[in-house]
Amino acid sequence: MNGYENPDIPEGINVTQEHPLKEFGQLVIGVTALIIILALAFSELGAYAARHLTLEQEVALAHRMLPAMWTETAAEPAEQAERKHLQELADRLARHMAIPAAMPVTVHYSAEPVVNAMATLGGHIVVYQGLLDATKDSETALAMVMAHELAHIKLRHPATAMGRGFAVALLLSTFAGLGDNVMQGWANSVGTLTALRYSREQEAAADSLALETVYREYGTVKGAEIFFEHASAEDNGLTPPAILSTHPSHEERIRKIQNFAAKESGAE
């Protein structure tokens, strides 16, 4: 077998000599930037479209989309009374906000022990028993939360958030056809983070308007921070970082109320 041999082939011809972490870094930054830019652009488009929804259309849409339990009046007399009381509070606060007549504010009561309230499409607000329990010592505290939800409605946050949500979901669904499921998970997380940014902006704007409203109604914002203090105590300090939250931190919101109070008392 003369002339037959297997010499050594040098290493590295078939493998690209590049550190895997370098490629990883470049790709993660590239893809993240791409998704953030697209998500922001789609968000703005969605919000733009939502702003073109008339109030009447929004009310009609809410009527069709929302669960039936909210549109029915509560069955028990005690709940009825509670609802009526909350509705009166909302109407009093709404006078200071100039909420258009085409968007009637409807307050619903839920006996669930959740310490929260929420505003949704078509001027509907849900107040939970848990919130009433937490703020039973101070009407200002309840009024602060109510005014906050009213501010969401006044500023049309539910519709804007819905428009943004749809647009970003549409964008992310096109990513679903590409790459691996890991990659999709990443795209979803990054897309959600941009949505959270808008959410925090909306909450901060609603807080500002709510503070002004409470001040106009009661002449003071004393006690407005009770709800946040309560919520803060419940967290036991286990709060995720701001970038991962839908709301500004409780401390930040309490500080804001205190600043407002200090400013008002200084002005008098």
């Binding site: 790709l27 893809v31 890991v182 990659m183």
Partner: peptide, 14 residues
């Protein structure tokens, strides 16, 4: 491995 799978998945985009 999971790391390479992720990098390859991202690479698919570009």
């Amino acid at each position: 491995d999971y790391f390479k799978q992720f990098v390859a998945g991202l690479r698919n985009l570009f």
